[in-house]
Design a protein around this nucleic acid. Structure first.
Lengths: 102, 102
DNA sequence: TTGACATATATCTATTTAGTTATACATTTA
DNA sequence: TAAATGTATAACTAAATAGATATATGTCAA
C-alpha cells in the first residue's frame, strides 16, 4: 500500500480563487487591519485610529476583506463592527512569519 | 491564570515581508507552477510544457519564487531543476482551498 | 572554435490596484 | 424635519507587475 496521496490538479477557476485569497493577504495595510480586529470585532473608526490610515482607505480595505469572506460585518447603531470570520488567516500569517524567522 | 496569548503587534517591516510572501502566492500561474513541481524537482522546460505558458514567462516566475525562498534551484548539465523548498506553501494552498470549498 | 540547446533577462504594453479627495448614504438625536 | 455622526463610494493618480517579443547568457557536443 502506497503512502502517496492521489491529488488531481486544480482547475483554472480553483487556482484563481485561491490566488485571489492570497492576494487579499498580500497588502501590509490589510494585515495591519487584521491585527487590529484579531481579538474582537471593532468599529471602523477604532480600526482607522489603530492603523493610522484615512477613513476612506480603511473602509475600502474592510469592504474587500468582508467580500472575500475574511471579515464579518455587523451594524450596531451608527457603527459597523468588523471581525475575523475564522482563525485560518491568523494561522497562515503565523506560519509565514515563523518560516521567515527561521 | 489567563488563557490569553500575549502577542505584540508586527512591525511594518514584518508586515511587508509577510505580505510579500502572500503576494508570491497570489498569481494563478505561480500556483500552477507550484503544482507542477510539488512532487519532485523538474526542469524548466518540463514546467513550461506542464503549465502551457511561454518560456520567458515561466522563467520569470521561477526566478521570483526562488528569490522568495519558495522554490529551490539546482543546475544539472544544461538544465535547471526547480523544486519546492518546503511543504508549508502546499499546506497553505490546501487550507485556503478547503475553507473556500466549505 | 562553432553550433545546438536550455535558461535568463531587457524592454515594452496593458492591467490592476492602493491611496487621495470629495461626496454620498445611513443612522441617531434634537 | 435638520443637524451631527459614522461609514461607504466615486473619480482620479501613481505605482506595481503579468505577459509578450527579442535577445543575451550559459552549457555541452562535435
Amino acid at each position: 500500500m502506497s503512502t502517496e496521496k492521489k491529488k488531481r490538479l486544480l482547475t483554472g477557476d480553483e487556482l484563481e480563487q485561491i490566488a485571489a485569497h492570497f492576494r487579499m493577504l498580500g497588502e501590509p495595510m490589510r494585515l495591519k487591519i487584521l491585527q487590529a480586529v484579531c481579538h474582537e470585532p471593532r468599529k471602523v473608526n477604532d480600526i482607522v485610529t489603530a492603523v493610522g490610515a484615512t477613513q476612506a482607505n480603511v473602509s475600502k480595505h474592510l469592504s474587500l476583506l468582508a467580500a472575500a469572506g475574511i471579515l464579518s460585518r455587523q451594524r450596531a447603531g451608527q457603527s459597523i463592527y468588523y471581525g475575523l470570520q475564522d482563525k485560518l488567516t491568523l494561522k497562515m500569517c503565523a506560519l509565514v512569519q515563523s518560516q521567515r524567522a527561521g
